[in-house]
Design a protein around this nucleic acid. Structure first.
Length: 682
DNA sequence: GAGTTTGAAACT
DNA sequence: CAGTTTCAAACTC
């Protein structure tokens, strides 16, 4: 493998992501990737755009181990990096590199689970250049120690003590760079072992630990990312920790389709190149991975799965087993989203929100993550189920009011996450929200005899095919956005605020289309002539053309009452949104937003589910219903995607009259969205 | 939490 | 295509 020349490495300012991207390491990685890097040169927005995402195989291929291991390797590499960093601090770089390599090899000692990850190999044979690079990066991150990994549990103090010890060692090295000797290494190793022991204790709840958080916050800016990396480095000493995999992560990983498609994946592949025996690449990947992972995580909803895990381990957030669970859910969602074969429809959106808020949020949020981590809406969205990670972030993260608020919201949302509860359908029929949404059932589901799992992939695919054969649109979005022409078709009689309509229409008889029994209402769209409902009172638009929504009063009240009554907590959760909103928002809308396509690529790719979701979501969002928030602030609906499953973030039903023109801006977005992809198993 | 209601999905 | 049954979510108590 080509090793970037040492001279290429130059101190990279960590203050901004873009700068980081410009770093030699990043470029090098980019060059390594067989796939054209979506964005080494991209701006923050570019990353946010999730350009890395690309459609992947519908179902995960069993390369779980590899992914998992890659994560481990990453962490291990961090350890190496740490060592290398220290070494670099000494005047003798060459020796330092050797020691670093040696240390890396030692780190392998902690690898108790030989898997596809060749632990030893990865660290060994690494060129000093690589170490130098890594160390350069690390060195450039001053003050990172303050972000040292912390565990919320009782062991925290012990851990901190170890960290302090490590810090002292570093200081000592600086004082006498030439004094480093095997004894020192032994000492260090002992400290590592001690820490490892502590980890073992802590690891009582692996899932919790895995649930560590903070990576989200990390994304906010490069500095944060680097900071996290540092913390990771400190913890890298813990070899066993690496092996600890939260159930959630595992489940997700199992579901992870081949990421080869993603550029990000490429990066990781390069990282995990150790499997292939390419130590350099591997190391390089590692060095960059931490950083890139953060970036990618930001851009890639799925990415977080891997990156996240690595970071989680690092962060040691042990607090949120539940959060981890949610995260796993999200991951799963992401996987499916990538699956071209699964069409996500609005129908599924609600479901998704319920159980899979994370993906939703993550997607959109990811778009904004890097941009405005501090923003309420943005953050919230971002985190959602994912948020847990951030929750477990560094102390610094917790300290900020914004973070706290985020955490609070996240917790609230996470609590509401739920999944299907199928008992007889085996989750292989459209009754099952998970299945309908193209998602595998997961832990949160309460289903019985569930076949909607990766293990039964074939069965799931067959079933889906069967259903599609019967109804090709079965997995297509149920809610379509009405273009002007479509509106014309619907006629003037249905001037509902929402430009979106249920494709097939509802058939309500008793609910008056004022309850979630009604798919139209649930989707937050008005009924259309295609509806066969009786006594339609849909607050988002009546079938008969009477637009109750025209006034914020009655129609909204009904809507709000129905949608919000039980979802009061949702309202709380979305406090931020409420600040800007006067009207209740149909949960679906929020849901839909949650499922939005993560990346432009995904959006552009008709085969991507995410796109479909996104599309459907956008469709579901009435143009006219643009929340005041949008008008007032940049708090995008999309951003608020994380609404809790039950949360009814209803976009305010609008009065047609006022809404039509002013809010065309949204239309632009909608138009840009590709049509829903047909379900075509790879 | 259990039971009921509701309407979509599935079946005939 | 229409009628019926099945199903799980939504809802009520």
């Amino acid at each position: 493998m080509d090793t970037p020349h040492k001279t290429q490495i130059t101190p990279t300012p960590t203050s901004s992501l873009s700068k980081f991207e410009d770093s030699p390491v990043f470029k090098y990685i980019d060059s390594l990737s067989p796939i054209e890097q979506a964005k080494s040169s991209q701006t923050d927005n570019a990353f946010n755009s999730l350009a890395f995402l690309s459609p992947s195989s519908l179902f995960p291929s069993p390369q779980i181990n590899c992914h998992r291991e890659s994560r481990f390797s990453v962490k291990r590499h961090h350890f190496s990096a740490d060592l290398s960093t220290r070494v670099l601090q000494s005047s003798n770089e060459s020796n330092a590199s050797q020691e670093a390599s040696k240390a890396a090899g030692q780190s392998g000692l902690y690898d108790e689970h030989p898997g596809c990850l060749s632990n030893d190999g990865s660290s060994k044979g690494i060129s000093s250049d690589l170490f130098d690079k890594q160390s350069d990066l690390a060195v450039e991150l001053p003050g990172t120690s303050k972000y040292d990994c912390r565990s919320p549990d009782d062991n925290l103090e012990a851990c901190d003590a170890l960290l302090k010890k490590t810090s002292l060692e570093v200081v000592e090295q600086e004082r006498s760079p030439f004094q480093r000797s095997r004894d020192e290494w032994k000492e260090r190793q002992r400290s590592f072992e001690n820490e490892r022991d502590l980890r073992k204790i802590r690891r009582i709840k692996p899932s919790e630990e895995a649930a560590g958080c903070g990576w989200v916050a990390v994304v906010s800016d490069v500095a944060d990312m680097l900071t996290v990396n540092t913390s990771i480095i400190h913890e890298n000493s813990d070899g066993q920790d690496q092996r600890t995999v939260d159930s959630g992560t595992t489940s997700f990983i199992s579901n992870i389709p081949e990421f080869s498609l993603d550029n990000a994946n490429n990066l990781e592949n390069a990282e995990s190149g150790d499997h292939q025996g390419s130590c350099k690449q591997n190391e390089l990947g590692d060095s960059v991975t931490d950083q890139t992972s953060c970036i990618l995580s930001t851009c890639l909803p799925d990415k977080p799965v891997v990156t996240d895990s690595s970071l989680k381990k690092d962060d040691k957030g042990e607090k949120c087993s539940q959060l981890s669970r949610q995260r796993s859910i999200r991951r799963r969602c992401l996987v499916f989203e990538k699956s071209p074969g699964f069409g996500l429809h609005l129908n599924s959106l609600p479901n998704i929100l319920k159980g899979q808020n994370p993906p939703n949020k993550s997607i959109l949020s990811s778009m904004k993550m890097g941009e405005v981590p501090s923003d309420n809406g943005t953050v919230v969205i971002e985190s959602s189920c994912e948020a847990p990670a951030s929750v477990g972030g560094t102390d610094a993260d917790h300290n900020t009011p914004e973070k706290k608020r985020q955490k609070f919201e996240l917790v609230e949302e996470s609590a509401s996450c739920k999944r299907c509860n199928c008992k007889r359908s085996k989750c292989l029929k459209l009754y099952c929200d998970c299945f309908a949404a193209g998602l595998y059932c997961i832990e949160p589901c309460s289903c019985l005899d569930c076949f909607n799992k990766p293990i039964h992939e074939k069965m799931v695919l067959e079933t889906r095919k069967q259903i599609e054969s019967r109804n090709p649109q079965a997995f297509a979005p149920k809610v379509i956005r009405s273009t002007d022409s479509v509106l014309d078709t619907w006629g003037e009689n249905n001037k509902t605020p929402a430009s979106a309509r249920h494709k097939r229409g509802c058939n309500c008889r008793k609910s008056s289309c004022l309850k979630k029994y009604c798919e139209c209402f649930q989707a937050g769209v008005g009924c259309s002539p295609s509806c066969r409902c009786e006594g339609c009172k849909n607050s988002f638009g009546r079938k008969d053309g009477c637009d109750e929504s025209g006034s914020d009063g009655e129609g909204l009240e009904a809507c709000e009452k129905n949608a919000s009554d039980k979802n009061s907590h949702d309202i709380v959760t979305h406090k931020n949104a409420e600040e800007h909103r006067d009207l209740p928002v149909p949960s679906n809308i929020s849901r839909s937003s949650s499922q939005l396509c993560n990346t432009p690529e995904r959006c552009s790719s008709e085969s991507s589910l995410g796109q479909s979701k996104f599309n459907s979501n956008l469709q579901a969002i009435p143009e006219d219903e643009t929340p005041k928030v949008l008008k007032h602030k940049c708090l995008p609906l999309i951003l608020k995607t994380n609404s809790p499953p039950n949360s009814k973030r209803v976009s305010p039903p609008h009065h047609e009259c006022s809404s039509s023109t002013a809010q065309r801006s949204r239309k632009l977005i909608l138009k840009s969205i590709p049509s829903f992809p047909s379900f075509c198993p790879p």
